[in-house]
Each structure stands twice: as C-alpha cells, then as structure tokens.
C-alpha cells in the first residue's frame, strides 16, 4: 500500500475526498432549498414537452422503432439535467470556493491533497446530481414514460454523465480569472443542450452527424435512451468509454491545476 503511494506523486493521491463532501453537508445544512432548486428546471421542460410540443411533433423513429415524442425527449432531458447540475456545481460554486472563499487553501494545510479536493468536489456534484436524477426518473415513471425496470439503469448512467461534466467543469474553472468567465460556460452549454441529439435523432443531422458525436452529452443521451428502452447494444460500450476517458483525463489535469494554483 505505502509503496504504491510512494510511486504516485502526492498531487494525485486520493485518500480523503469524503472530507470535502462532509464539509459541504455541514455548510448546506442550513440551506437545503438551494440543493433542491436544481431539480425543478428540467421538470418544467419535461412537462412543457409533453403538453405542447409532443402534440405537434407526433412520433419519432429511432433504431427502427416508433416512439412518442415525449418518451423520446424525456431521457435526453434527464441526461441534460445531469449535465446541467454537474456543471452548475463544478463551476460557479467551485470558483467561489477556489478564488473568493478560499476554502481549499485551508484544506491543503492538512493531510488533504489536491486530488482529495478535486475528487471531493466532483463527488459532491455527483451526489446532488443523483438526487435530481432519482426525482426526475420518478416523475417519468409517474407520467408513464419509463418502459421497464431497465430504466433504473438511467441512474448510474446519469452518475457517469455527472462525473464527466463535473470533471470538465472543475478543470475549466481552474482556468477562470473571475466571474465574467462564467459567461463562457453558459455560452458553451446551450449548443450542447440543443445539438446532442436531444430534441431530434442523430439521423436528422445528415452529414453533420459527426459533429454531434463530438459532444460528450450526445454519448450520455444515447446511454440514457438505451437504459430507458432496455435496448442494450455493443455501441453503448463505446459511448460509456468516451465518457470514462474524458472523466479520468479531466480529473488528473484538474488535480494538477489545483496543485499549481494553490501550492505556490
């Protein structure tokens, strides 16, 4: 054990990420409403899709099956909400703790290391994301949009999506100079949300389908759809691998950035 740790540079050793989460649990104890607020936005989207857009559009053909529009969109909204929650937690909140509240400076004077901070923050984003995902799935089930027990697999898939975006968000935040850089985040999220085969199948993008494939959200949406439909194919492994690789790379880089920024 200790010999293994000796080879890994201290920057990347993960031993106490749960302490960061514990800190957040205490800090948010007095403001649980903030934690739950992120749940409602995707829910309103879902309800508006069902009530309005669904009637106009009719069924959608995916993978040789015909699916009602709201059943087609719901998994995509679930994936998007996992992305939104993860980004929200790993950018604005992290920027505040990194640059203004300077929470991490104190942590790094203890046995906590940069990777503990990064992994802890991302873990916290995942926990919040799972709370939203469970709520969202329950509403989907209530509206009759889930197809089988396989739909439960959407939860770990959302955790993976959350992991990917929280890692990217955290890494990006370490490069921010101040609050004005948050605009970049909002600008980048909108096209991801709209063009990740969220509202129409990838086939309708024609020759531009490959651009869609560059979006990490596209891979997340494909996974949630498959989970909800209970249709498992080999290509899903590729989708999952893309997300795992992005997450790991972003996490390693993020730990190094925390080290560079705070241990000067």
């Amino acid at each position: 054990m200790s010999t293994v740790l000796r080879i890994v540079p201290e920057t990347f050793v993960v031993r106490r990420p749960h302490r960061m989460i514990e800190r957040h649990v205490v800090a948010y104890r007095r403001q649980w409403m903030i934690v739950f607020s992120g749940f409602f936005e995707p829910l309103f989207y879902l309800l508006s899709m069902r009530a309005g857009v669904g009637d106009l559009v009719g069924d959608v053909r995916v993978g040789g099956r015909s699916v009602p529009y709201d059943a087609f969109v719901a998994p995509a909204l679930m994936a998007s909400s996992a992305m939104n929650g993860a980004i929200f937690d790993s950018t604005g909140n992290v920027l505040h703790r990194l640059k203004y509240a300077r929470i991490y400076d104190a942590a790094l004077a203890t046995p906590m290391g940069p990777a503990d901070v990064a992994v802890g923050e991302i873990g916290w984003a995942l926990i919040r994301g799972q709370v939203y995902a469970i709520g969202f799935l329950a509403v989907m089930a209530g509206l009759g949009l889930t197809e089988s027990w396989w739909s439960l697999m959407a939860l770990p898939v959302c955790a993976l999506i959350g992991l990917t975006f929280a890692s990217i968000g955290f890494l990006g935040t370490t490069y921010m100079r101040g609050w004005s850089d948050m605009d970049i985040v909002n600008t980048a999220m909108m096209p991801l949300f709209l063009f990740s085969a969220t509202f129409f199948p990838i086939s309708s993008y024609g020759d531009w389908g490959w651009v869609v494939q560059l979006s990490p959200l596209y891979h997340g949406v494909a996974l949630v759809r498959a989970a909800n439909a209970g249709v498992w194919t080999g290509s899903l492994v590729v989708h999952a691998l893309v997300l795992v690789v992005i997450s790991v790379v972003a996490l390693v880089l993020a730990s190094r950035r925390v080290d560079r920024l705070l241990r000067r």
């Binding site: 106490r16 302490r19 514990e22 800190r23 205490v26 800090a27 104190a106 942590a107 203890t110 046995p111 906590m112």
Partner: peptide, 12 residues
Amino acid sequence: QENLWIYGRFFD
C-alpha cells in the same frame, strides 16, 4: 465551532 470540527475531520 463548525470551522474547528471540519478542520479536525480533515485530520481524520
């Protein structure tokens, strides 16, 4: 006091 508790938790 939470400052002291949480800091202590960082030390396990």
